[in-house]
Amino acid sequence: MTMVYKERTFFGTDPGDAAANQPADLETRVADTLAAMRDIEASDVSVVSRGNTIVLSGFIGSPEEADRAVEAARSVEGVDEVVNQLTIPDMRT
C-alpha cells in the first residue's frame, strides 16, 4: 500500500503564509519592535491593526518619542500606514 501526502494548505494558501498575514501577527510584530527600542517608553502604547494600517494609541513621553514610534511601526514589513493617536501627558502641575 502506498501513501500519498498532499501539500498542506489553508484555504488554498500555505499555512505559514496565511498566519503571517493575520492582523494579530502584524500587531505583535509592531509591538515587539516598539518594545525593543531603548529610546521609547512604549509600555502604555496600544497597537491595533486594521488590515495593513496600524493605529498607535495610549500615552508616550514626548513628541519625539511619538515620532520615533510611528517611524518604527512604519518600518515593520506589511505595514502600509500608521495612524498616530498617541497622547503626550501634560507634565505641568
Results as ranks from 00 to 15, higher is better:
Thr2Met: 08
Thr2Gly: 04
Met3Arg: 10
Lys6Asp: 11
Lys6Gly: 14
Glu7Ile: 15
Glu7Gln: 15
Thr9Ile: 14
Phe10Glu: 13
Phe10Cys: 15
Thr13Cys: 09
Asp14Leu: 14
Gly16Pro: 01
Asp17Tyr: 09
Ala19Leu: 15
Ala20Met: 10
Asn21Thr: 08
Asn21Gly: 15
Asn21Met: 14
Gln22Ser: 09
Ala24Ile: 06
Asp25Arg: 02
Leu26Thr: 04
Glu27His: 04
Asp32Thr: 11
Asp32Lys: 11
Asp32Leu: 07
Thr33Lys: 06
Ala36Tyr: 12
Arg38Val: 12
Ile40Trp: 03
Ile40His: 00
Glu41Val: 10
Ala42Lys: 07
Asp44Thr: 06
Ser46Leu: 09
Val47His: 01
Ser49Leu: 06
Arg50Met: 12
Arg50Asp: 14
Gly51Val: 05
Asn52Cys: 06
Ile54Asp: 05
Ile54Ala: 00
Val55Ile: 10
Leu56Gln: 01
Ile60Arg: 03
Glu65Cys: 11
Glu65Met: 11
Ala66Phe: 01
Asp67Gly: 09
Asp67Trp: 01
Asp67Ala: 15
Arg68Lys: 13
Ala69Leu: 09
Val70Lys: 04
Ala72Asn: 02
Ala72Glu: 02
Ala73Asp: 00
Arg74Trp: 06
Val76Arg: 05
Glu77Tyr: 11
Gly78Ala: 10
Val79Gly: 04
Val79Ser: 01
Asp80Phe: 07
Asp80Pro: 01
Asp80Arg: 11
Glu81Tyr: 11
Val83Gly: 02
Gln85Met: 13
Asp90Gln: 15
Arg92Ala: 09
